[in-house]
Structure formats: C-alpha cells, structure tokens
Design a protein around this nucleic acid. Structure first.
Lengths: 214, 214
DNA sequence: TCCAGTCCGGACAGTAAGTCCAAGTGAGGT
DNA sequence: ACCTCACTTGGACTTACTGTCCGGACTGGA
C-alpha cells in the first residue's frame, strides 16, 4: 500500500505509521500524502488517487496556502480532481523535535460516494412514500354486520328467525373471517345475531367439536 | 477542540497537528486519541466521544493488542461503545527520532451514521416488504413483527437498543394498525419489543394520555 | 298435555387485561 | 466513586373478559 521514495528518509520512518493508519481507516476513499514542503516534492503516498508518486512535484496546490509561522492545521477545504471528483482535504505541518517544519501531511477524502448516497437519500426521502402501510380492518364490527347481513339477505329471513343450522353457518363464516381473534367479539356477535352469549358459545363449541372430529 | 494534559509535552507538540487534521477532516464523527502507551494514559484527545480526558486511563482496550516489536499499524477493527455506537478504529505506534515507541495514536470513527444510511438504502433497494395484503390479516402477529422490523431497519439499531421515544413511536404505529384490538396482543408486542408487559402498558398509557390531551 | 329440542339468563370458574408497587438498573452529574 | 433520577421490571393484585354449566322457559309436534 505504501509507496515511498526512500524508506530510509527519517521523516518517512517517523510519520508513516500515522499516515498508514488513517489510510487504512478510510479504506479506498482517501489518499494520504506526505510532502517535503521545502522541495515541493512527494515523500510518500498511501492509496494514491492520482498518478503521483514519490519524487514527483506535489502539484494540486496542496502546499500553497501553508504558512508554518501561523498555523499548523489547515482545512477541511474542497478540492476538485480532473475527473470531477470532489475531495475534502486537510493538511498538517509536521515538525521535528526542534520544532522545525520537516514535512506536510495531506489527507484527501473522496466525497463522491457520500454525495451520491446523500443525493439518493434526498431524492427518495423527499417525495416521501405516503405510507402504503395498509392497515387492518379498523372497524371489525362493521364486518360482522356485513357478513351477517348478507347471509340474512341470501337466506331471505330476518335474524330472529334463523334456524340452528343457519347460525352455525354464519358463525363458521365469521370465524373464517378471523372475527373471533378480536377482543369482545362474542358479545358483539351475539348481539348482532339477536342471540345470547351462552348460545353463541354453545354453537361455537359445537363447531369446534365438528372441526376437530373431521 | 484539542484537550491536552500538558501542551508542553514534546510528544503532544509533535503529533498534535496530524491528529488535529484528521479530527477536522472527519467532522464530529471521529475522535482522535493520543496515548502514552507506557503509562496507559491519555495524552490528548480531539472530538472526545466518551468522557475520557487527558490523564485518564486509556480504557477501551485500545492498547491491548499492540506489539511495537511486530507492527506499527493496527486495524481497522470494530469496537462497541456502551451506548451501542459501533466504531471503526485504527491505531498507530508513533516513534521518536531514535525509533523508540513514544506514543500511540488511535482514530475512532463512529459508523452509526453510515450504518443508518446503509440500512435505509438497503431498505429501499431490497424487495421492500412483499406485502401479502389480505382483506383480513389472518396472522396479525406477522404484521407486528413486520412493523417493528421495518422500524428497526429504518432506525439502524437493534430492537434491544431502542430508546424510549423510539418505542413510543413504534407503539403508535402498531396502535394505528389496530393491533391492540386483538386478543393477547400486548404480550406478543412486549415479546417482540424485548420489553416487559408492564413497560408496554405504561407506554401505552402515556400515549393515551398524550392523545387525549391534544 | 306432554315431550324433545332449543334457547335464555344468570351463576360460576378460568384466563387474560390492566394497574400498582417495591426493587433493580443504568446513564449523567458531582 | 458515589449519588440521583428516570426508567424498567417482575410480581402481586384487581378488573374485565372468556368459556362452561344448569335450571327454567319457550316452541312445535305427538
């Protein structure tokens, strides 16, 4: 991963662990460059994104805005690569033990993947899905009356006059519709059928017995 | 931004530009820690994400796996913060001009923002939810898990780590979906949320109070 | 009228739904 | 390291609902 002009250079030896660590952390999306500021050359480079190598002129104007007498840390500022990729960059002036500037570290982070992801997210998020979350049948009692009503109409006889078999049939349908999974279902059904709670339970027990038997 | 025990420490003076540059580049999502490996202490820290400060023991086991005689760069490896944030971390052994290990730099990058984005993208891209939309959902527990699941995915955080507000939100959605009209709904939801029945009832009461007040 | 079949309402037991509280837990502050 | 506060939890407890049982009442037919 590391490409350096001269690993024997004490500056490279000293700074390469830090540079390499950062390059590792940011995976393929960042390059780390160690510059010789005085000679405007690249000392070493990790994850190169351009074709630069050690010994090449630094280019990119990475060192233009540095003023070691003022500050040591610059950025993040934006840079544009020839192919249009946008970079976020920081630079740090590195000093030797006497406090003299000896090198400059630049980290160039390619933001295009994140920009793309951001755009994608923004595009999807904006016209926000109007909640296709289809809900349950909110009013299940409605459904109870519907089922009973249509049966009564088909049978041509009011609920009060339904015979035993009829009620068994209706209860079967209601059960298939999942009505009895709801709380308070039996009293409601009993009311709608104009029958007593006891009767409904008795009929349901009968159905269950039949169902299990068959 | 920088918090250091003793800026006069030559190691801090020497390494802080590099550390600060990295901290700046990665914005609020990364902390950079400079350790005194020999004494297992923090020398300086940028963008602290935990409560550690200079002079504190290093903790976090950041220095456990280091072996300066072998390599200088470690990682990226994954670490887990107490609050559930997942970190990508790298460490570098920093040496003085004689080549003696003098400090260790650790960069801890919080990946939850990216995880969340990734989760969201995955949620959109994936076959979403193949919605077997029946008129009457026979298997309402299925729906419970679907709703909780999609929320967890959007939130990018496992169900165990959902905060109070998150759970209130989920319960609101479940309620809108009519889940609590079913028998045995609360125990099922409590199980799916990895919370106790009591807690679910408490949160539901809170929602009801809010809803009536407004 | 009597019988058979059914239904009713109420009593009752069992199970689930809610409420309440003391104790435990964990994050944040000092 | 300790305290505090907010929250969670399991369990005890109350209330509501579910399901069963039975005596009495109604109905239609012999």
């Amino acid at each position: 991963m590391e490409i350096s002009e001269d690993s024997a250079d004490p500056r490279v030896r000293m700074w390469s662990p830090a540079c390499q660590a950062v390059a590792l952390l940011l995976g393929p999306y960042a390059e780390v460059v160690l510059h010789d500021a005085a000679r405007d050359r690249v000392l070493a480079i990790w994850n190169p994104m351009t074709r630069r190598g050690p010994g090449d002129p630094s280019l990119l104007g990475e060192l233009d805005r540095l003023d070691p007498s003022a500050r040591d840390v610059y950025g993040p500022y934006e840079k544009l690569l020839a192919d249009g990729r946008r970079l976020s960059s920081v630079s740090a002036v590195l000093r030797d033990e006497e406090g003299q500037p000896s090198a400059v570290m630049c980290v160039n982070l390619d933001r295009t993947p994140m920009d793309r992801a951001a755009a994608l997210l923004a595009g999807f998020a904006a016209p926000s899905t109007p909640r296709p979350e289809a809900l349950f049948e909110q009013d299940w009692t409605e459904r109870v009356h519907q089922i009973i009503g249509s049966f009564v109409r088909a049978r041509g006889r009011p609920v009060e006059r339904l015979g035993r078999e009829d009620r068994l049939t209706v209860l079967t349908e209601l059960d298939r519709a999942g009505v009895f999974a709801f709380r308070r279902a039996v009293p409601v059904v009993a009311g709608a059928l104009k029958a007593s709670r006891s009767t409904v339970y008795a009929l349901l027990a009968e159905l269950k017995a039949q169902g299990n038997a068959s």
